[in-house]
């Protein structure tokens, strides 16, 4: 099952990228997330690994994921190494200056096949989509807040330079 959701944010792609590349930020915007831990030596970049858990229905599902694409400032993609079989991607595209579209793609499969696997994939679609939408809304708030903070910092620095 593959689900795509997207959101427009009032910030350049670089701000979005800087926010998404920092693993410490994920607990602040990922909806339903209960655990996000860096596993291994690299906090980010190609090959970085995280242990992630998200509450879906009665269970916290997830497992170990590995970053398989790290294309600054456009794409971050990951695959599951253990736990629930899934793939995900952040696709960041600046449509016009200061306006960026963030696409969140998530594909999952329920190992076990058969009728139960199919029913579970379909049944999980609604709660997963709901969580993805909430995640994007929270990401939009965080990134736009970050952008306003950066702009304010820049204004202060400019005023300081003019005054001196």
């Amino acid at each position: 099952m593959r689900i795509d959701e997207s959101v427009q944010v009032a910030a350049p792609a670089e701000t979005v990228w800087r926010y998404l590349e920092d693993p410490e930020n994920y607990l602040h915007f990922m909806s339903g997330i209960t655990h996000w831990e860096v596993v291994g030596e690299h906090p980010n970049g190609l090959g970085a690994r995280y242990r992630i858990l998200v509450r879906v229905g009665a269970a916290e599902v997830g497992g170990l994921v590995e970053m398989v694409e790290w294309h600054e400032p456009f794409d971050i993609a990951w695959h599951s190494v253990s736990g629930v079989d899934h793939r995900g991607r952040w696709r960041i595209r600046e449509r016009r200056p200061g306006r960026t579209r963030i696409e969140y793609r998530f594909a999952y499969g329920v190992v076990g096949g058969g009728i139960a696997g199919l029913i579970t994939e379909v049944a999980a679609m609604l709660p997963v989509r709901r969580q993805m939408r909430r995640t994007l809304q929270q990401l939009k708030r965080q990134v736009e807040h970050e952008q306003r903070r950066l702009e304010a910092e820049l204004r202060r620095a400019t005023r300081g330079a003019v005054a001196s």
Binding site: G57, A58, A59, E60, V110, V111, G112, G113, G114, A116, G117, I119, T120, A123, A124
Partner: peptide, 18 residues
Amino acid sequence: EALPWLWLLSTFYFRAEV
């Protein structure tokens, strides 16, 4: 392979929370 059945039963029949 049993997890899909257990998840369906736990989530929709028993509205379980752990």
